[in-house]
Design a protein around this nucleic acid. Structure first.
Length: 482
RNA sequence: GGUGCGGUGGCGAAGAGGCUAACGCUGCGGACUGCAAAUCCGCCAUCCGUCGGUUCAAAUCCGACCCGCACCUCCA
């Protein structure tokens, strides 16, 4: 089987994935600027790279995962002034809120979540070294990186300095040596937060934080650097310039970029104002559905958002969860019967084939859309096997094995197989339901279908679904969308 | 203007030289059922933006064109 391949923005091709240190993966993902709740566009890289991480861990790599918080920034200052709170308060609030959303989406915590405000000395030191190296210069309190000193500038975004100048939409600052030079340190303006530095009071430019912090936690050269497509230029291009000019080594071996979420085919962004907060979406749909939806398209493709798409995702996820629920029931009521060894063996062969297809999908640049398709195939295989009423030891073992593989796959994708509304809370409810079902069964036995249907309908209205199956009566809580 | 990505059934979405073009939703037919639901079985693109070309063979490669999107400015 082909081993893992990763699309590298730097080369524009899929490359075999080989980390610098065998068995270990060091990755850095650009995190949000914490001045608001996160929106769906922010959520995509979280879920995508969390899935990348989960798969790498599944493959047995030890993953060091760093995700920063940009907590020093113009927009934060502005927002803090508007809300009449200090930038610190604002940032702490939204970092707390960030974790609520990320946790709900099943995004694992990073190994470290470094914050700019807590790494000022690292950043200042980094800038100092760039000046010493002669690739950065200070001009009355500001410090700029001299792009012309870095010969490979533009290699990530595939542009050269001439192109950039031709397309420049920003007014030229006469103090810069080259119009494309970018700020490493910005002189403090009145009323803004500032830190002391050798160049006077000020604060870091946007790009330097990632160079300084990734260096601190992952070293001069690490394996994967991830983020959204829109960070390729200028953010990641500038990070490369800073880090590689200083260390002379490739900053990251693989650069991965996720596509955008669009709304009516237009990019969802804060500046366009067409964004949807994760918080507002999860008020209508379960966070699990949101995660499932985000993974249902390959991470590099654009993904259009509207409620209808989430409804469809919800139905799909429910199908997967139903299969798992049926398995749990089968497991608890499994009986011994006639051995059907051939069927069991055929089944397990099919399951193994599906498992292989799942790995192939994930190995092909984390093709979660295909991986999910395999999950559907496995769900159907399990349902089919169970519905045949095959019994006996071999069948039981085969089904247990398939369910274990099913669980593994779901875990790699971070998808919960047990619906959030599934928790059968107390014995009291179970007892009451047994009683109600018994009464209804008596009505059915007497062909009093009016009563039976009224009970079923009534339960539905309070959120409980009854199903009369050949195997008996089943009940479950209604999920969002039912 | 420069750079990059994409156009696959009613919808969403995989596939990137050669099995009947996955998978999900929807729809239709069947099994099961008092009915409903769930589940299972089957059907639904002679065709992959358009026009040419390469090839024994193309949705997949090449060229031109049309359309959409993104980046070049803060943005995931």
């Amino acid at each position: 089987m082909e081993s893992l391949k990763v699309y590298n923005t730097l080369s524009g091709t899929k490359e075999p994935f080989v980390p610098a240190k065998p068995g270990q993966v060091r990755m850095y993902v650009c995190g949000p600027t914490t001045y608001n709740f996160i929106h769906l566009g922010n959520a995509r890289p979280l879920v995508v790279f969390d899935t990348v991480r989960r798969y790498l861990e599944y493959l047995g790599f030890e993953v060091t995962y760093i995700q920063n918080f940009t907590d020093v920034d113009d927009k934060i200052i502005k927002r803090a002034q508007e809300e009449k709170v200090s930038p610190e308060e604002l940032v702490n609030k939204y970092i707390g809120e960030y974790f609520k959303d990320a946790d709900a989406l099943n995004v694992k915590r990073a190994t470290v979540h470094p914050r700019v405000s807590e790494h000022m000395s690292d950043i200042i030191e980094f800038i100092g070294k760039l000046i010493d190296k002669g690739v950065a210069y200070a001009v009355d309190g500001d410090v700029y990186f001299a792009v012309s000193c870095f010969g490979e500038y533009g290699k990530l975004s595939k542009r050269n300095l001439e192109d950039l100048q031709a397309g420049a939409r920003v007014e030229v600052d006469e103090r810069k040596l080259n119009p494309a030079d970018f700020a490493l340190w910005k002189k403090a303006k009145p009323g803004e937060p500032w830190w002391d530095s050798p160049w006077g009071p000020g604060r870091p430019g946007w790009h330097i934080e990632c160079s300084a912090m990734s260096h601190k936690y992952l070293g001069e050269s690490f394996d994967i650097h991830g983020g959204g497509f829109d960070l390729i230029f200028p953010h990641h291009e500038n990070e490369i310039a800073q880090s590689e000019a200083l260390f002379g080594a490739p900053m990251a071996r693989y650069w991965m970029h996720n596509g955008f979420i669009t709304v009516n085919e237009e990019k969802m962004s804060k500046s366009l104002g067409n964004f949807f907060l994760v918080r507002d979406i999860t008020a209508k749909f379960s966070p699990q559905v949101v995660r499932f939806y985000l993974l249902s398209t390959h991470y590099r493709s654009p993904l259009d958002f509207d409620d209808g798409k989430l409804e469809i995702a919800g139905k799909g996820l429910e199908r997967l969860q139903t299969a798992y629920r049926l398995f749990k029931e089968y497991k608890s009521t499994a009986t011994t019967g006639i051995e059907r060894k051939t069927e069991a063996e055929n089944y397990i062969q099919e399951v193994k084939g599906l498992h292989k297809r799942f790995l192939e999908a994930m190995n092909d640049d984390f093709n979660t859309a295909l991986a999910i398709a395999v999950l559907f195939d496995l769900a159907r295989a399990m349902n089919g096997f169970m519905s045949k009423g095959i019994e006996g030891n071999e069948a039981y073992k085969a089904l247990m094995e398939s369910a274990q593989i099913y669980e593994e796959m779901a875990k790699v994708l971070g998808i919960e197989l047990e619906s959030a509304v599934e928790q059968k809370d107390s014995g009291l409810v179970d007892g009451l339901m047994d009683l109600i079902i018994k009464v209804r069964q008596e009505a059915r036995a007497k062909k009093d279908f009016a009563t039976a249907d009224a009970i079923r309908q009534g339960l539905k209205e309070i959120g409980i679904i009854l199903e009369d199956t050949p195997q008996g009566v089943r009940w479950r809580y209604k999920s969002k969308g039912d």
